[in-house]
Design a protein around this nucleic acid. Structure first.
Lengths: 122, 122
DNA sequence: CTTATAATTTAGTTTAAACTAAAGTGTGGT
DNA sequence: ACCACACTTTAGTTTAAACTAAATTATAAG
């Protein structure tokens, strides 16, 4: 077991991404839609880390990028994760951990929403 | 598997402490002697974290405190750790990770050494 | 060519983890 | 009573991780 795996699994965000791509591949966008409390950029950065740790692999199809877990790279950790997701309270614990591990500036609002035609003054 | 276990194992320092108390109990002092790159206080804090995570237990005997791993609390993680320590390069990787995960002020010298009789001016 | 969509990358911000130094606690020896 | 020893705790410092916002890349479609 490579030490880098421990680092990758230390983050509740990355563990949740792993769960989402555990049994079937998902696009980066779909993963983001499942975790709308952070920006798309944040998800992309975590996907990069998982990828570099060898815990997920990606495939490009037109404009989409599909990710899936490399379960064979996780060894005994796969059992740990599945045991965790089997816990009736895992979702509650995840929420608490995500809250705790937050860093950086808080999101200003529910994200700008790009007012339809602000092109007035130019 | 409790999420707190992933957090505890994320630190190379804590993983190394676990290794030291894996097969036989060790005093806090002995653990510190094995990791003289940090202060006794730093070791004590990490032992507290491991203790609160349920990964070690302690017993007091006169002025000493003996710690040992609670391997039964680690489940599949025990295999992961042993697999890691079986890697021929684990010691090298540990050193790199310890260096990387350092925080806080650098140690001023090789630690004061308390000059024998500085009581001159008073 | 232009615009929209999907995703990545870059630069900058916030926060908790890992530390140090020093003070505190408790036990044992003289 | 005092001091040394073994260890823990507290207060304060440094740093990387996790984020945001914005710029960028790349593909597709009118």
């Amino acid at each position: 077991m490579e030490p880098v795996v421990f680092d990758a699994l230390a983050s509740p965000r990355r563990r949740e991404i792993l769960r989402l791509v555990w049994t079937e591949e998902q696009t980066a966008g779909a993963i983001h839609k499942a975790m709308p409390d952070v920006t798309f950029g944040a998800i992309s950065l975590q996907l990069r880390q998982l990828s570099e740790a060898g815990l997920v692999e990606a495939r490009t199809e037109s404009r989409n990028r599909f990710y899936r877990a490399r379960r064979e790279a996780l060894g005994a950790a796969a059992e740990m994760l599945e045991a965790m997701w089997g816990d009736a309270l895992w979702k509650l614990k995840l929420a608490a951990e995500l809250e705790h591990s937050r860093r950086g500036p808080k999101q200003v609002e529910a994200r700008s929403k790009k007012r339809s035609k602000p092109k007035r003054e130019n």
